[in-house]
Design a protein around this nucleic acid. Structure first.
Length: 116
DNA sequence: CATCTGACGACCG
DNA sequence: GCGGTCGCCAGAT
């Protein structure tokens, strides 16, 4: 699997806007969903102008490894992205009208009850 | 080849 | 809200 399409899209995220891993996965129809997007981002090559910091978790939470969190936050704030507590204000900065509104999205296949 | 490990997100209790 | 499970799957060991 090549991550090129992922990086290509991330590069198009405008300054001051963000996308979620899940949104990225849905837009590209990545097999495996959001986690696949996360794997791609974890392997982001440096020095290629890929704005990795514009990709955040659902709800605007920063999911990068601890040592990168402050950097990511700093980069985003320097672009004018607002934070609410520890989350990016998606209502204001989510890219391409992927609304911060979460649709319930009912599960089709009921989950097997967990053993105790 | 067998296992383990995650930059996720949805569910469940 | 919080913590644990589950599906998913490319790399690393």
């Amino acid at each position: 699997m090549s991550w090129a399409p992922v990086y290509a899209l991330v590069k198009q995220i405008p300054r001051g806007r963000v996308l979620t891993y899940g949104g990225l996965a849905r837009l590209l129809r990545l097999p495996g969903g959001a986690r696949t997007a996360g794997r791609a981002m974890a392997a982001t090559p440096r020095g290629q102008g890929i704005p990795w910091h514009r990709v955040v978790g659902e709800g605007g939470r920063l999911l990068v490894p601890d040592r990168y969190v402050s950097l990511q936050r700093k980069l985003l704030e320097s672009e004018g992205v607002a934070f609410t507590e520890l989350r990016v204000n998606l209502q204001r900065h989510l890219w391409a009208g992927l609304l911060a509104k979460k649709s319930p999205a009912k599960r089709k296949t009921p989950r097997k009850p967990r053993e105790k």
